[in-house]
Simulated scan of single mutants.
Amino acid sequence: PPSVLQQLSSTLNKRIAEHHEVAGRGYQTSYSYITDLQFKPIAILSIPYFENDTFNERALEGSLYNLAIVYFSLLIVALIVAYFISKYITKSLKTIEQRLDKTRLLSRNEKITLKSAPAEISELVSAYNAMIDEIENSKALLAQSEREQAWREMAKQVAHEIKNPLTPMRLSVQSFQRKANRETQSSELTNEFCESLIQQIDILSNISTAFSALTNMPAKNDENFNFVPVIKRTLDIFNTDYIHFTYSDSDITAVFDRDQLGRVVTNLVKNAMQATENTPMPHIEVSLYKDNDCITLKVKDNGIGIKETDRDKIFEPRFTTKTSGSGLGLAMVKNIILSYGGTISFTSEVGKGSEFTAVLAHFLKTNQT
């Protein structure tokens, strides 16, 4: 055709290809010059051929197949990794779930220990362990409260049963002592016997009084007063030269009950004196100072100290390490201090002494006119 001849003339390589379609199927025709020996065109060669996309289609199918294999392999690997990760996480959660199922208020609860746990699981475990600590502390406080309540109930009955016959017993012994002194010559032996009986009766009476004081504390008679002279008068009763009283200010004023303050000082000092009974050079230091809205009372001695096994029970009623005494003094001191919202604690070293610290919080007041 003329158009083909024109295109061949304008091309450099003297060769062209045209695309045609017949009955919806494409084919191409290639045109090129046939030249003689002098390279002059003598004819045009036309070669038609149908297009074949089988190779391209097969190449595309192979690529898609390989891509599908890669994606499928990645999916399998992802599922396996996800399985092991979920197994690892759920193992920790399973351990926590089992411990939570076993957690009981009245039984011994164990803490959770996990190695190499994720950060979120570690935080959950830490929260659980903190909850276990709080439960154990609450159980200890509850048990102590129940023991003290049971002891108070028992002490009421014991105090009542002991005190009832003591007064008539004492009166009877005193009456017998007077009659024996008038009627017999052996008054010295009789007096000695009666004095011994009266002394034992007084001991029982004091124990009964201590029971009553512990179980039925008198109503508070709060007033605003200076602690320093009250503590001085209380310490004067002991009449010993190894008790020293120091204070940060001559006027340390607070709202408190005078009598109960005297009980606190008396019991702490008596406890210190009993601890220094066998000390060659006993020394007891009572100090009082104020800081912001707190008043702190300290009683320090150089006595025998408190054994490690006795420290958890030192404030419990009926507990004592002395051969004499009711074991109610420190329990009474603790009740008084706690009733005013304060705290009491101690430090001790066996063979070197102890120091009791009573902090009365939120009760410091200045004198107002």
Rank of each mutant, 00 (worst) to 15 (best):
P2C: 04
Q6G: 05
L8P: 05
S10Q: 10
H20G: 00
A23G: 05
Q28T: 12
Y31H: 06
Y33F: 15
Q38R: 13
Q38F: 15
Q38C: 06
Q38N: 12
A43E: 11
F50M: 08
E51L: 13
A59T: 12
S63G: 09
Y65P: 03
V70G: 01
V70K: 10
F72C: 08
S73H: 04
I80M: 15
V81M: 11
A82G: 09
A82L: 12
F84Q: 12
S86D: 12
Y88Q: 09
T90K: 14
T90W: 14
L93W: 08
R99I: 04
D101E: 14
L106Q: 03
L106M: 08
N109K: 00
I112S: 01
I112N: 03
T113F: 14
I121V: 15
M131L: 14
E148P: 01
E153G: 03
A159W: 00
K163H: 06
N164G: 04
S172P: 02
Q174G: 03
R178V: 06
R178N: 04
K179C: 03
T184E: 08
T184D: 05
S187M: 08
L189W: 05
T190Y: 07
E192S: 11
E192R: 14
F193M: 11
E195F: 01
I198M: 00
I198L: 05
Q200K: 03
L204G: 01
L204D: 02
S205F: 00
S205R: 03
N206K: 09
I207F: 06
S208I: 00
A210R: 03
F211R: 00
N216I: 07
N216G: 09
N216M: 07
M217I: 13
M217F: 10
A219L: 15
D222N: 14
D222T: 10
F227S: 04
V228K: 00
V228N: 02
T234L: 04
I237N: 09
I237P: 01
I237K: 12
F245G: 01
D249Y: 04
T253A: 08
R258E: 14
V264I: 15
H283N: 15
E285K: 08
E285N: 11
K290S: 11
K290Y: 01
D291Y: 07
K300N: 13
G305V: 05
F319C: 00
K322H: 15
S326Q: 04
L328T: 01
L330H: 04
L330K: 03
L330Q: 05
L338C: 04
S339M: 01
G341L: 02
T343R: 05
T347P: 11
E349M: 12
S354P: 08
F356K: 02
T357K: 09
A358N: 00
H362D: 15
L364E: 12
T366V: 14
T369H: 11
